[in-house]
Amino acid sequence: MNVKKQLKEGLVTQNPVLVQLLGMCSTMAITTVLFNGLGMGLSVLAILTCSNIVISLLRKVIPNKIRIACYIVVIATFVTIVDLMMQAYLPSLAENLGVFIPLIVVNCIILGRAEAFASKQSVGASALDGIFQGLGYTWVLLVLCVVREFLGNGTFGGGIISADGIRIIPEGFPALGLALPVGGFLVLGVLIAVTQWAMNRPKKTDTEEVSK
């Protein structure tokens, strides 16, 4: 088991949103205030880890031909659990995220990891993969939330620090468009462009090490 490599893959080199380009719908739809991003990120993290563990445990039992249907049932079960728990304990968050919580079932990240990783690897490795990929998804959501909330509403930490967050830009000045659907596309596009730029930069440290 290579914990360090998995961590790096989940957070950066194989980041589910920025590099694998999976799970776009929820990423853009709910990242308007920090609280939503955190809630969504942690829900996906929990569901991804649980479903990875169960699918990895069952990987020798599930027949190859109907594997996708089996994965979907496992995932849908965990999504329902999270959905009901959230409605019971965090009703305001459940209301904000709305239809996107049940839609985690069809989030390509979870099915993608089940197919590409959990169905082939041991339970421990799959659990770690779930946690790291979930963290990779969460940090991207948080970055998007912070940027869109700051530029779109002029606040920071909405829902967590206080109901409306701390106001940084005075009212009337923020570009409201960035909090609307348009902003989701634009901010994510720029973020992915930054990632591509950072990854394609010639790596000085690597070549130096090689020359040594």
Binding site: F185, L186, L188, V190, A193, Q196
Partner: peptide, 15 residues
């Protein structure tokens, strides 16, 4: 721009 090639520019267009 090179960094925007492919997916990012498509997202901007969609925006």
């Amino acid at each position: 721009p090179k960094s925007f090639e492919g997916f990012p520019i498509a997202l901007i267009t969609a925006g």
